[in-house]
Amino acid sequence: MSSREPMALIRSIIRNRVNGLTVVGSAHGIDIDLLCGANAVSASQESYVGFEQDFGMAQNYRRGCESGEIEIQDNCCYTLVQQLRASIQGLPFMPIQSVRGTDFEKNHPSYKTIQSPYSGEDILVVPPLTPDVAIIHAQYADLHGNLRIEGPPVVDLLFAQASRTVLATVEKIVTNEELKRLGGANLPYFYVSYIAEAPMGAHPTACYPFYAYDREHTELYMSAAKEGSTAFKKKYLKDFVYECESHEEYLHRIGGEDTRVRLSSWKESADAWMELYKGST
């Protein structure tokens, strides 16, 4: 949602005119909405796409779903976890003690009810999920590709373990010695296919301890998204994605060093942190 989304990677995917994507994840926001705004998504298996109470509904995502451009295949967090676990463990399915009786059961013909060979009770089983590509933004990697995620990894580690290819951007590439000094890797290098250093690569979402969530920029994003898909392309995508030939150009357009300094001010005090979230909306 507002933390550690792989935004630089997503901007690059859009610039490379990739489309027809099926996106899958747990709770997301601007990352998925941006892809939808660029018409890159044809199916969504997300469990949540929105901006919480902060800015409400994800407008591009909503529009894409409602126009029929995006096929809706909503999932739920634990179902997703169990499907990833099935894939990680090489199992043909995973049982799950929920979902039956809700409309997710009806909308997912791939979910089946079987009888437990032990107790005889009915239990739902869900198929393995093996994404082609997982995209992750982390704080650190070493030169070998060992990844260190600080703070809640949420589903990133499971996604990395289950996916065929893992693309990661990081704030900083350091030596293995330095990585160990920082607390060590939580994703071993052999899971990681490619890494690139992209400072502020999660912007406008947060990547603590480097920078907080850029609420100001997100507000600008939302006001363009609310105006409709054509306005969004003209007022946001053009300036911050299509015309940015590199990540450096993007950083320049969002205010360069001043923005970095503003967003890292959260460290100074609770008041300074809070100051970043005061705003008109």
Partner: peptide, 25 residues
């Protein structure tokens, strides 16, 4: 929290996160 409209979609809502799973258990 998924959608308004029973047969035809009127409004796509953000989605339920883990609500479906937790509501059962």
């Amino acid at each position: 929290v998924t959608q308004l409209g029973r047969k035809t979609l009127k409004l796509k809502l953000p989605g339920g996160g883990g609500a479906c799973n937790l509501s059962c258990n």
